[in-house]
Amino acid sequence: MGLGFAVGVFGVLILAHAAYSTIQYRGLLKIMEEEFSGPPMNVVIELLLGFAVCMWAALTVPGNFLSIHPYADENRIVSLPANLDFMIFNHRGKAFPLDLDLKLKH
C-alpha cells in the first residue's frame, strides 16, 4: 500500500514535470514565432513513463481481488472459525502451560 502510493505520487510528479516542459517549449515557440505542431520528444517519453508508472500504481494500490466462489480455498479457511460447532475447550492442550503473554512479545 505505502510503496504503491509513493509510486503513484512519483508518476504524478513526472506528469507535472512533463507539463512544465511543454509550457517552456511553447514559450520558446512564441519567441521564435513558430506554430505548435506537437510536443517535443523528451515530453512524449516522459508522458509514456508517467503513464506506465501510474498504471502500475493504479493496479497495485487498491489491493488484491478476492475469489467469489464460496468453495475456493481462501474462502473456506475464513468461514471455518465462524462455525461455533468446531470450538473445543475440553482437550489435552490444557495440560500445557498457558502462554498468555504470547501476543505481548510481538
Binding site: 508522458l47 493504479a58 493496479l59 478476492l66 467469489i68
Partner: peptide
C-alpha cells in the same frame, strides 16, 4: 462481499486511470 470488494477495486483503478489519461491528453494537446 468479495464481489463488492472486487468492484470497488475496479472503480478505483478506472477512476485513477481516467484522471491520468485526461492529464496526458491535455499535455499532448
Amino acid at each position: 462481499e468479495n464481489m463488492q470488494s472486487n468492484m470497488k477495486i475496479i472503480y478505483y483503478s478506472r477512476t485513477f486511470m481516467s484522471i491520468i489519461g485526461g492529464v496526458i491528453a491535455g499535455i499532448l494537446g
